[in-house]
Write a protein that binds this DNA or RNA. Sequence first.
DNA 1: CGGGCCATACGGCTTTGGTCGTAGGCTTGG
DNA 2: CCAAGCCTACGACCAAAGCCGTATGGCCCG
Lengths: 220, 220
Amino acid sequence: MREVLIADDHPLFRDALARAVTQAVPDASLHQADSVAALLNLIEAHPHAELLLLDLHMPGANGFSALVHVRGQQPGLPVIIVSAQEDARVIQRAVGHGASGYIPKSTSADNIVAAIQRVLEGDVWLPPHVSGLTAKVESAEAAAAAHVAELTPQQFRVLGMIAEGLLNKQIAYELNVSEATIKAHMTAIMRKLNVSNRTQVALLARRLALDPALETADYG
Amino acid sequence: MREVLIADDHPLFRDALARAVTQAVPDASLHQADSVAALLNLIEAHPHAELLLLDLHMPGANGFSALVHVRGQQPGLPVIIVSAQEDARVIQRAVGHGASGYIPKSTSADNIVAAIQRVLEGDVWLPPHVSGLTAKVESAEAAAAAHVAELTPQQFRVLGMIAEGLLNKQIAYELNVSEATIKAHMTAIMRKLNVSNRTQVALLARRLALDPALETADYG
DNA sequence: CGGGCCATACGGCTTTGGTCGTAGGCTTGG
DNA sequence: CCAAGCCTACGACCAAAGCCGTATGGCCCG
């Protein structure tokens, strides 16, 4: 039984992906998540999954940070990015951050099935219109990614909330631990990211964003 | 005597711009700056300047924030953006934030002279290859810009340093005031930007950035 | 199986951040 | 000329952030 994880916040598209997976791998065991938080739990519950379909625009994804973290935690788990974005530069960055495939949401069902099969065989699948792709990532972004990949799952959760401007107290409440614990994570995160305060942590996390103007939080 | 301000950190190109201005306006009085900090002093020293040539990639410019702030402080001062970036989306955003012109650095000297003359006459000058330009800016980015435009010059200086991850103590030292004063500015900035802590201030400031991966600070 | 390593968790203590009240200087308009 | 309003500046006070030491439980390896 081959386990496949699907992470997408759009229920309709999530179902469509599920059908494609079932068609590509009839004996697949499917597990779905509609947020990055849920995805992290899913990964911990199914450490031997063989494929992850990941939406770039999910709540809490913060651009490529979810991809980068998953790749750091489970280097053997191939990830196919699913996104409405078809910009070649975004695809380039995704591959540079370790994605094994990229499926624009306009892709036909047949091609999605083919992509899943190819990636499960160890290949990389990209949309037909991107040909000679170099997978280049800015050095500042690559450095940020390398550090984010080192974080533990819990530290990654904390990172996401720092990047939304939350207080330690609020993060502690969300994760059901004491504020002291969050502070300990903070110290560890700052050490791993090689910075000295939470503002720099938040700014570094945002380097993996897709677009500076597209933000989830909306203060102001 | 017509005063013209030039802000660019590249000395050679700054001189080239100066020559173009002199050719376009023979009786011009020129004033130059090589950083945003210097530009702010220049603007305070010459409140009746008639034109500003502004490089987008100057130290401390943080994308469009310098443009937005200047437009907020001196709504009557037309600004021509000078940049190596020729991406239509960047030009679109610049015009959306109130730029009166956009000169790619590949522009010929004759065209630069023409652009300066046109803008001084009240027109908007753009590179020939961008035709039907809509000047659209993401709503989240526009909201950030509207708030940044309300900041006083000193508050804007503080904002820039917060967005680099500096401590209040460090900002106070840089600006030669007490830490208590910086804290007062902080409170005022948070009120104007409608947020509740410095991390959110930094994140909001970065919405005006050009590209998430291109950062000035290099922690890590 | 026992020792080493690490992720997670917590409390106490110091440093930094953020609020409030206050005050001088500068500009604008009656 | 004085009043209102704003920018800048400061000190005192409380809340939040960040550092230290410590503890527990899971995991791998000899």
